[in-house]
């Protein structure tokens, strides 16, 4: 019964506050209730009123009415503190599981300063954030996810108790943007495809991403994972995609290198290898089923690889309840430079 009520409530909230990366708080989506102290204050007012009645004391009546009016005024003040506040998700952040990942939100005050805001999501919470009129502020909430993949907080609660702490006004931000959690790096056994070879590494460095694949028939000694099995299924020919100068080349980190290993573990091994290459500043490429990232070096490249590992096999979360005719955003892509291996091969 309780869970049913809870579910209904959640549904109502979700309906009222659709997933948006950009949210303007207004009376439509700001909720307000007295805090514990506020309830006690209400009781105190009642006791004061009874005192006033019993002792026929006009001034106690007066004090009670003044404080009661201040309480109501505080209701509006607290509400106005949030109303008009514009929240925009800047980025979902990225990081490793168990590490705090900053979820960054830009807040812009509307007609009034928004003072003493607190943002919370599950166990994480930041307090005393002040957003003054005309001075947008970037707030960042350090969330700690534990699973690889897209990471999107269901709701971020924005709350204020200003000015008196007798009332709390709150709303939720239900972001569309998601952070990305990389696979947990696990030291990988060095596999055959990544055996170190100094000469070939230096050769590979001269290739600046403009590689193309030579396709040649299979011959004795070729590693079975380098057979284009898809083509074999289509045509019956057993061919090897011979990436230029890449024969067993160490700069390619290959999903297929870890035969018989569980997918998540493979990704963890690859993440470890990516980190390892980044640390030693060696160029490398990443070969995932259905996706290939050309060899390169540098931080941005490494991050791109980690991201690819993070979302491997996962679908980007939808922005909310599906509508009959399409989605709110265009199909996601990882930008230029990343294309699917299938495209590359055709």
């Amino acid at each position: 019964m309780r869970s049913r009520i809870r579910k209904r409530w959640q549904r109502w909230i979700n309906h009222r506050i659709p997933r948006r990366d950009h949210q303007i708080l207004s009376q439509r989506n700001v909720f307000i209730l007295p805090t514990g102290a506020g309830v006690i204050f209400g009781l105190l007012l009642l006791i004061m009123l009874i005192t006033g009645i019993n002792y026929q004391n006009s001034l106690i009546y007066l004090l009670t009415f003044i404080l009661g009016a201040v309480f109501v005024a505080a209701m509006h003040q607290t509400h106005r503190n949030l109303a008009g506040l514009e929240l925009t998700v800047l980025s979902g952040g990225e990081g490793f599981p168990g590490d705090p990942i900053p979820f960054r939100i830009r807040a812009k005050a509307g007609g009034n300063d928004a003072l003493a805001l607190s943002l919370s999501c599950e166990d994480t919470r930041i307090d005393q954030q002040h957003v003054l009129k005309g001075e947008p502020a970037d707030l960042s909430l350090a969330l700690v996810p534990f699973e690889r993949g897209y990471f999107r907080p269901d709701r971020i609660r924005v709350e204020t108790r200003f000015p008196f702490g007798l009332l709390k006004a709150w709303s939720w931000l239900r972001p569309v943007s998601a952070g990305i959690v990389f696979p947990d790096p696990i030291p990988a056994p060095e596999s055959a495809s990544t055996v170190q070879d100094g000469e070939q590494t230096s050769q590979a460095r001269s290739i600046d991403g403009n590689d193309h694949a030579d396709i040649r028939p299979w011959r004795e000694g070729d590693l079975s994972q380098r057979v284009l099995w898809k083509r074999f299924a289509r045509t019956g020919e057993m061919v090897i995609a011979d990436w230029e100068g890449e024969q067993g080349s160490p700069q390619w980190l290959d999903y297929e290198a870890f035969r018989g290993v569980d997918q998540e573990l493979r990704l963890s091994y690859l993440a470890y290898q990516v980190l390892d290459r980044m640390k030693t500043n060696r160029p490398f490429g990443l070969n995932l089923p259905g996706q290939r990232i050309d060899p390169d070096e540098g931080r941005a490249h490494g991050t791109r690889c980690l991201k690819a590992l993070a979302v491997f096999g996962l679908e980007k979360p939808r922005e909310g309840e599906p509508l009959a005719f399409g989605t709110r955003t265009q199909d996601a892509s990882f930008g230029p430079g990343i294309r699917s291996a299938r495209e590359a091969r055709s």
Partner: peptide, 20 residues
């Protein structure tokens, strides 16, 4: 008396937003 109460409520505001 009323001033005393107002002073209390100013303190309350400071308590709720000491940083501004």
């Amino acid at each position: 008396n009323l001033t005393g109460v107002l002073v209390l409520f100013v303190g309350l505001q400071v308590l709720n937003a000491p940083g501004i």
